[in-house]
Amino acid sequence: MKIGTIGTGFIVEWFLTAVEHNENCECLAVFSRKEETGRALADKFNVKKVYTDFEEMLKDEEIDFIYIASPNSLHYSYALKALEAGKNVIGEKPFTSNVRECQELIRLAKEKHLFLFEAITTIHLPNFKRLKEKIGELGPLKMVQCNFSQYSRKYDQFLAGESPNVFTTKFSGGALMDINVYNTNFIMGLFGKPKKINYFANLAHNGIDTSGVLIFTYDGFYAEAVGCKDTKSHNMAQIQGEKGYMLIEGETSRCRQVEIHLNDREEVEIINDQEDITALYYEMKDFLKIVEAKDYDACYKLLDYSLSVCEVMEAARKDAGIVFDADK
Results as ranks from 00 to 15, higher is better:
100 R>C: 08
94 P>F: 14
87 K>C: 07
101 E>G: 00
106 I>G: 07
136 G>T: 12
82 A>F: 09
137 E>M: 15
93 K>R: 11
93 K>Q: 02
84 E>T: 03
124 H>L: 10
119 A>E: 14
103 Q>L: 12
92 E>W: 07
93 K>N: 01
80 L>V: 02
116 L>S: 00
109 A>K: 02
115 F>K: 09
133 E>R: 15
122 T>P: 10
93 K>V: 09
103 Q>H: 12
139 G>K: 03
114 L>H: 05
86 G>T: 05
130 R>E: 14
107 R>M: 14
91 G>K: 13
112 K>Q: 08
112 K>H: 12
139 G>I: 05
122 T>C: 01
106 I>Q: 07
139 G>Q: 02
78 Y>V: 11
90 I>H: 10
113 H>W: 15
141 L>C: 06
112 K>D: 04
113 H>V: 06
107 R>N: 15
115 F>L: 10
144 V>N: 08
100 R>K: 11
95 F>E: 08
103 Q>W: 01
135 I>R: 14
94 P>H: 13
118 E>M: 11
87 K>E: 10
102 C>D: 09
108 L>V: 02
91 G>E: 15
86 G>E: 04
121 T>Q: 13
103 Q>A: 10
99 V>P: 10
119 A>M: 13
87 K>I: 00
122 T>R: 00
111 E>C: 15
109 A>M: 05
79 A>L: 08
136 G>K: 12
90 I>F: 02
95 F>H: 00
136 G>H: 14
126 P>C: 06
136 G>E: 14
79 A>I: 10
106 I>N: 07
123 I>D: 01
92 E>G: 11
100 R>Y: 01
93 K>L: 02
79 A>E: 05
86 G>W: 08
102 C>Q: 04
84 E>I: 08
118 E>S: 03
78 Y>N: 05
85 A>F: 00
102 C>A: 13
